[in-house]
Design a binder for these strands. Structure first.
Lengths: 208, 208
DNA sequence: CGTTTATGGATACTGATACTATCCATCGGA
DNA sequence: TCCGATGGATAGTATCAGTATCCATAAACG
């Protein structure tokens, strides 16, 4: 397959594919001569994944690069590879809350993890984001939202158990890593959409 | 309060505050003379909200403008105002999936809503995003993820009931609308962080 | 075999977003 | 009275995500 066919197969313009190649979102094709490369089904799959992340999940290109790099790093133990993919999925966020608010939030989150018996890295980005957000609840005068943490955590626990199970059931390791990425990122847009729909449905029922 | 004090109170540079004023994220201060305006506590609150949305939740400035406009539109029935706020919270996404995939996804989502008895607008953006995402599961060869829809919906139902209840319990209508915005947007980052932490904790337990 | 079209690679340009910087006439406080 | 801050306008900057152009070469067609 040459680049034009790759473009037709995916609906992505040739210049954009060239851009993705430059940025390392897509591995180079097999070169047969200095200006002739062959692409395969793997490239089509990869491009579809990139587009889903960029267009649907609105993941920045730089972050997509990290994500696909983790998918291609299959020369380490599977567990390490999944860890790397998982880390690449978490966006960096600016710290915004005051130090005092963050301290209060840190304590609240720590207690939550204790209550639920969750064992997580003490300095991971997901934990930092959670703490920052809870701290922001305080600075915005929405302390009552802190009370929802347990309800959210309990709900999340339910399906996460199933997700982890499903992921480990995949036959090949490429599929395992890829399904971690897709399941986590697109799963988030699913959950978010469902939440908005549930809010709409429930509040409509309450007002009629 | 003059703009310098507003800047000191929030930690936001004066030029940025001027930019937010220009963009309509912040209402103008009370003008006492052509180059002298007074800002109040409401401005401090609003700036904190804007910063939380922009920095923490990474909402684009143009969308924040819609959101705050909905908060200020308190001359319509509360129910309409909340509807407008709710709509402003849903980002627009490009359509990416093929027509066939979208058709399959539409049927699957429709059945889901039927099963759960959710009554929602047939052409809302949240529904469109959900359909688009399910369609993408198909084009990425991750049909198995469609099986998670019920688990996600069931989990989401649990806490949404509580959320709607809590929101309606607020004493004043500004607080109602504002807590819809904060609860929905920051609630999403909380849920997302908790999900990642749960994944980390559960998969660590499974591999040790 | 010659001509048109496509290709890989490099470099330059574009439009959108989110600020920053500068300017200026005016105002308020020491 | 005079110096720094203010409101408002306009211009400049950095980053991001592509697009566009150019070129020498290679493939496809008549």
């Amino acid at each position: 397959m040459r680049i034009g066919e790759l473009s037709r197969a995916t609906g992505i313009p040739v210049p954009t594919i060239k851009y993705y190649l430059r940025e390392g979102l897509l591995p180079a094709g097999e070169l047969s001569s200095p200006n002739q490369a062959a692409y395969g089904e793997a490239h089509v799959r990869r491009l579809r994944l990139v587009r889903a992340l960029v267009d649907l999940a609105q993941v920045p290109v730089a972050q997509v690069k990290e994500i696909v790099a983790s998918l291609d790093a299959d020369d380490v133990p599977l567990h390490d590879q999944i860890g790397r993919a998982h880390r690449a999925l978490i966006p960096a966020r600016k710290q915004t809350a005051s130090a005092e608010a963050r301290e209060v939030a840190t304590a609240e989150v720590r207690e939550l993890l204790q209550r639920r018996g969750w064992q997580v890295e003490a300095d991971g980005p997901a934990l930092a984001t959670l703490i920052e957000t809870v701290a922001t609840f305080h600075t915005l005068g929405q302390q009552n939202l802190v009370g929802f943490l347990d309800a959210y955590a309990a709900a999340v626990e339910q399906f996460t158990e199933l997700e982890v199970e499903a992921v480990t059931a995949h036959p090949t390791r490429d599929q395992v890593a890829e399904s971690v990425v897709i399941g986590t990122i697109l799963g988030e847009t699913v959950i978010s959409s469902l939440r908005l729909l549930a809010q709409e449905s429930i509040s409509a029922r309450r007002w009629s």
